[in-house]
Amino acid sequence: MLEARRWPAKLVLQIVATLLVLPFLFPLVAMVQESLAGTGWNNYATVLAIPELPVFFRNSVIIAVVVIAIVYVCTMTAAFAFSKLQIRAKEFFFWLLLAALTLPEVVILAPLFATATSLGVYNTFIAVILPLAALQIPFTVLLARNFVDGVPNELLDASRVDGASTWQGFRYVVWPLTTPIGAAIVVLTLIGTWNDYLLPLVFLQDPALQTVTLVPSFFVGEFNNDQTKVVAAAVVTAIPEILAYLLLQRLFERGLSAGALK
């Protein structure tokens, strides 16, 4: 790990880090300023006064929690299998899984719609949860496999000598060491699920099932387009994922760095 010990080097690194952050900081500042334009904090009051807002937040939380659980379980077990188990043609299946990263959400929308209607799950949470989880898993497996590769094989060999099964080796040896990448997976899955707009818009027609990503649409219509309240709604709906990232920031950074630098 590189470390700057002298103050000139620290100053240079601070300047570089600041320059790298500024392009990402300006849009956030502009968004907050835009949300306070016009009537100021009354924009937020109007957003918070939407009667359906608590229901939308509840629905988003339900979908996010279930998707995170599915993605986490599938990712950890798949990463362990691809990294540590001797499976025939596992590299072929791994690259086949990564090929799914090339499929954008909009491309598979028509097949998903046909499948949801034929199975009778249209206008239910299942129609959104399963596709969202499937879209997240290829990338999270890629991250988690790189992390699990860094777990020494000697630890698993020692557990087998002590009589542990493959499942016990995963549960008591590998899984406790995957906390950092697990936190990264939780944050990335939460962001991807919470911000998704297309699937809830298409598959959740009942207003009682819709999510927070549809809140800004309350202020855009045929005869009105209040962009200040749209931006205020975007800020309000982004708060939960920002808090989640701040709470898991250290583990998130450790997981991504460990997955990149084995």
Rank of each mutant, 00 (worst) to 15 (best):
T179I: 13
V121T: 05
V107Y: 06
S35Q: 13
F56T: 04
R254F: 00
R250A: 12
L109S: 10
R254G: 07
S35A: 15
F203M: 11
S35G: 14
A258F: 06
I68W: 00
G120A: 09
E222Y: 15
V12D: 03
L209E: 07
L98F: 09
V55H: 08
V148A: 07
V220H: 11
T228G: 09
F223D: 12
A158C: 10
L20S: 15
P200V: 12
N146F: 07
I126D: 00
L132E: 14
Y44M: 12
L2C: 11
L188A: 10
P51Q: 15
L48A: 12
W95F: 15
A110L: 14
C74Y: 06
Y172N: 03
A134L: 14
V141H: 03
P131E: 00
A158R: 11
I137Q: 01
P207F: 14
F93M: 00
I191H: 02
V73L: 11
F139L: 15
G120E: 04
A133E: 02
Q168Y: 06
L11T: 14
A233G: 13
V202D: 04
I185Y: 01
A114V: 14
P131H: 02
S60F: 03
I15R: 07
L199S: 00
T228L: 07
V148W: 02
D196T: 09
V187C: 07
L198F: 08
Y197D: 08
L97C: 11
D226W: 06
P240A: 05
T211N: 03
V12S: 11
A233C: 11
V151D: 02
V215G: 08
L11S: 13
D226P: 07
L201A: 14
A100P: 00
L142H: 09
I185S: 04
S118Y: 11
T228C: 09
L198P: 09
A260V: 08
N225I: 12
V12E: 06
F82I: 03
G163S: 09
A114D: 14
F113E: 00
L190I: 08
V61R: 00
A45I: 10
F57V: 09
R250G: 05
M1P: 13
A37H: 13
L201Y: 12
P207R: 08
R250P: 01
V106M: 11
R88E: 03
F219V: 10
A78Q: 02
P216H: 02
L142D: 01
A78S: 15
A89R: 15
K262N: 14
Q249C: 13
L198M: 12
F223Y: 15
L11R: 11
P216I: 04
V21P: 06
